[in-house]
Design a protein around this nucleic acid. Structure first.
Length: 316
DNA sequence: TAGGCCATCTGGTCCT
DNA sequence: AGGACCAGATGGCCTA
């Protein structure tokens, strides 16, 4: 069986052909900078030079072909940008858009890497998890995440859990929130003040994510986690914060009766993903816990503080 | 004004 | 041959 690294990629080296295919091609400019004896005339195909015959330098494209090539390039870039947009929506991010700024592409990629890393850590580092249940393939990971989503979200809709779906959530036409939504919803209310807070909170939430069953104790555990978060939130932020969030009131509500902790308010969570200080808080939850209080939550909207303050697994 | 980010154009290279 | 992908060049816009 092939070995896989921490990122679930095969540790075996790619075949030479594949390496060639997937590695970056040499830059044309570098090629151009190579010494060439007789200027333009010395142009030859750069690779696979089985033939020593010089080939004619290709002519510039005709105006028509240049136009169509440009159009194709624009549409290609548009697709890439749409993918970036989807990624921006999927990755929880700082409130850098407080002034209508959006994440840059490079920031989006960096956050995505860290977010994936954090989620992987959550899945693999939960206490009491059997090693056999740790996902080792993409499919298993997807199943684990789906199960985690079902655990929280499915139990909620069942009515026995701590999270109670509202009309928006339980409507058959509305898609179920993803695990990411849940993390975002929870994370936006998470503002632990000590590493112990984070530790206990995270371990509880992590086991909820991984329990896979739903109902019963898992539900109350999830409820208490949410209750804790909600309650905790109230000690650290103005309640008005939640009401200011778009759509905050509609999507989730916490059922006090099924919650074992002191969540006494109906708390709305925003959906879909929002930018309001979620990632900082979740990052705080995922950071390697130190013996000192967590850093202040406010990063002044600087996503790179993320990088400076939290060690995450590097993706190779 | 400098620097960052982005869209677009363009030519080179690879693939089908 | 033509499309896809890539990277360099360039100019516009915005912010500190």
């Amino acid at each position: 069986m092939a070995e896989f690294d921490a990122n679930n990629n095969s540790a075996l080296p790619l075949p030479e052909k594949a390496q060639e295919k997937y590695s970056l091609r040499p830059r044309a400019s570098l090629k151009r900078e190579e010494p060439d004896e007789d200027h333009e005339d010395s142009w030859k195909p750069s690779t696979r030079g089985r033939s020593t015959k010089r080939r004619q330098k290709p002519k510039p494209l005709s105006r028509y072909r240049r136009k169509t090539a440009n159009a194709r390039e624009r549409s290609r870039m548009r697709e890439i940008n749409e993918a970036f947009e989807a990624l921006r929506r999927a990755v929880p991010h700082l409130a850098v858009d407080a002034h209508n700024e959006k994440l840059t592409k490079i920031t989006t990629l960096r956050l995505a890497m860290k977010y994936i890393s954090a989620l992987s850590g959550l899945l693999t580092a939960a206490p009491g998890v059997q090693s056999s249940s740790v996902p080792t393939t993409g499919a298993e990971a997807a199943a684990a995440i789906a199960a985690a989503t079902t655990t929280i979200c499915g139990a909620s809709i069942g009515g026995g859990g701590g999270l109670v779906g509202t009309a928006a959530m339980s409507s058959s036409s509305a898609p179920l929130p993803t695990t990411t939504d849940h993390l975002a919803a929870l994370g936006c209310c998470l503002s632990p003040s000590t590493s112990d807070d984070v530790d206990s909170l995270l371990s509880e939430y992590a086991s909820d994510l991984l329990c896979g069953g739903g109902g019963g104790s898992e539900c109350s555990s999830a409820a208490s986690t949410v209750g804790f978060l909600a309650d905790h939130h109230h000690h650290h932020h103005s309640a008005a914060f939640l009401h200011d969030l778009p759509g905050a009131a509609a999507t989730y509500s916490l059922s006090p009766s099924s919650c074992s902790t002191s969540a006494t308010d109906i708390v709305g969570f925003p959906s879909p993903l929002l930018s309001a200080d979620f990632p900082v808080d979740v990052a705080a939850a995922f950071m390697p816990f130190a013996d000192h209080p967590l850093p202040p939550i406010d990063f002044n909207g600087d996503p790179y503080m993320f990088e400076d303050n939290f060690a995450c697994t590097e993706f190779s």
